[in-house]
């Protein structure tokens, strides 16, 4: 017998110890720097999330360049509606102060669909005290207009009762 009876066990233990030491240092080396600062996570991830760019920039950012539409919208019954809901995200339109794309403007039937997202009385779940709803096409019939009319033929979308009230005033109805 050339080797002592416990030689293999000693070599094995040495190998295991080396393995554990390497593992220990590898864990130290590869763990992200800010990990564990506030808890079991990478603290830098908080600022990374906080720095995510905004894509919807709220109505005041639209007003700057579109004062006409905004003037009506901000004073009419639709003042609580976000421009970006109907037209799309600001970030798809402007980047670093420059126009990078055109946001879609809805037309005719699209407008009716859009209006009925909120104003369709067939959806009974809408609380009456919150929103004024209509039944289609009964509303068109009652107003004695063509049933093919889209909503914007009577209602200016940015301020729905603006022109209606205006014409009523002229006719002395109010």
């Amino acid at each position: 017998m050339h080797t002592p009876h416990n030689a293999h066990v000693k070599r094995l233990l040495a190998a295991l110890i080396i393995l554990f030491v390497i593992g220990f240092f590898a864990k130290q080396a590869f763990q992200p720097k800010s990990f564990g600062k506030y808890g079991h996570y990478r603290a830098d991830a908080i600022m990374e999330e906080a720095n995510r760019p905004m894509r919807l920039m709220t109505n005041p950012s639209c007003v700057k360049c579109h004062p006409y539409e905004a003037g009506h919208q901000m004073t009419g019954l639709h003042k609580t509606i976000s421009c970006e809901f109907c037209h799309g995200a600001y970030a798809d339109h402007i980047k670093d102060g420059k126009k990078i794309g055109t946001l879609p403007v809805k037309r005719n039937a699209e407008i009716t669909t859009l209006c009925l997202r909120c104003h369709n009385r067939a959806i009974e779940a809408r609380p009456k005290q919150v929103i004024k709803t209509v039944v289609m096409p009964d509303h068109l019939r009652a107003q004695k207009v063509d049933e093919k009319h889209s909503c914007n033929q009577c209602h200016y979308v940015h301020a729905p009762l603006k022109y209606i009230n205006h014409s009523k005033k002229i006719m002395g109805l109010i």
Partner: peptide, 14 residues
């Protein structure tokens, strides 16, 4: 915090 592409200064805080 940088606004990331678009300036925030002239948009009122909510």
């Amino acid at each position: 915090i940088p606004a990331g592409g678009n300036a925030l200064e002239d948009i009122p805080a909510q």
